[in-house]
Design a protein around this nucleic acid. Sequence first.
DNA 1: GAGGATGATTGATGTGTGTCAATGCCTCTG
DNA 2: CAGAGGCATTGACACACATCAATCATCCTC
Lengths: 237, 237
Amino acid sequence: MLCSMASNGQSAKLPGFRGADASGGWMGKPRALELLASQAVIVRADREEEIVGQGEAAEYCYVVVSGCVRTVRLMEDGRRQVGEFLLPGDMFGWEALEEHDFSAEAVTAATLRRYPRRGLELLADRDHELARRLRALSARKLRAGRERMLLLGRKSASERIASFLLEMAERTGSGEGSPIELPMSRTDIADYLGLTIETVCRGLTHLQRQGTISIERARIWIRDRRALGVAGCEALH
Amino acid sequence: MLCSMASNGQSAKLPGFRGADASGGWMGKPRALELLASQAVIVRADREEEIVGQGEAAEYCYVVVSGCVRTVRLMEDGRRQVGEFLLPGDMFGWEALEEHDFSAEAVTAATLRRYPRRGLELLADRDHELARRLRALSARKLRAGRERMLLLGRKSASERIASFLLEMAERTGSGEGSPIELPMSRTDIADYLGLTIETVCRGLTHLQRQGTISIERARIWIRDRRALGVAGCEALH
DNA sequence: GAGGATGATTGATGTGTGTCAATGCCTCTG
DNA sequence: CAGAGGCATTGACACACATCAATCATCCTC
């Protein structure tokens, strides 16, 4: 069950929280939320536990403190699309309308800070800086969304897999030599990339045989960053 | 060439503009922009003309007044993904960061109102109502984006085509009996749905043979709304 | 009204990825 | 340490959609 406790603005001292801002959250750092700290509640979720349900009234939004969370859209016949993987520092749920149009589930055991959406709205009315941050945040999410549409609509399976590895390497900040620790299962990756689990496996194996990466379960080393960029159709810069 | 002229806040009287708010823009009506009218410029674009270029500095944002505009992301080898089709009342470009990460092109001859992004930002700082509208606008765009990820990642060709027809029927407000007038080519539809033009054609023909729709070039009648909903995996309500 | 350009449609064929199924590897439990 | 369960990997095969190619419809031009 989802466990929560009031944090009384002292959440910065709670275990697992200190690294949140330092981690450089992919979707933007919600520093301005410090003003809302008094309304924040720390929530813990076990692995595979649902944090918000698709269609649920959107009362709260969340910041991931530790662990990994996925957003999921489900079709009635069970087909699944993972919208995004959220890592420490990432925020979600504030961009809802009346209700959440996706569910959020813990990929690993996770800690989150939960804020009332209404409080955020009211604060944004008074704090231009926060409002701007929220706009920048949604701009980044929209940009990421367009990138993913290109991936889902036009890239081949191997291109998707290479792009995914590059994205995760960037987000987890895994440098030369240090591996990417993938918190999610192959099934999650497949549902994120619009592929099947078998195709993801084969794609990874293929990259390994080429010498581009090394695989050890959930740990992946990038051996040839350049080749991976080419395989993922990385734009020139 | 892109033609523009200062509107001095009287643009509401310009031909083609009157219908903009009445049309119920899909992405939300930017009524609050009336406050920015003095900074607005009317821009005209010929069919197939580029309005903003991918990678261009994001100085302006736009509201479509008449015609149809598409946003496009291009890969180096020519693969193309259409992000969205913009109809009268729809706004785009305000959710950029430093530069636009997509290009916008006129599908048909189009008229747009162009606003300086900086002016919009400044106004949003003072006007909570506008800021809220912008947040709601991006929430809707993000929601639409998640819906499209599901479509691109998990739906079959025929499901995508049925979903597309339903979306266009909704947005153009074509009721029973009156046809959908599709402003875009089959190629555009294909690039929007992550398919090839041939697959789009075949899918449409198939729906016609089933008696679900009737086709006459760019005009499409929905004969069996229910069957189309099933074909497009429309969620129950 | 002939000729050409452009876009839509249809057909034949190929292939990338999905589906089905077997096996392997690791972890947990008693 | 045996057995079970969960996930990852690999193989064989099928099929949905892409590709290649031909034809058709419409519009434009001279």
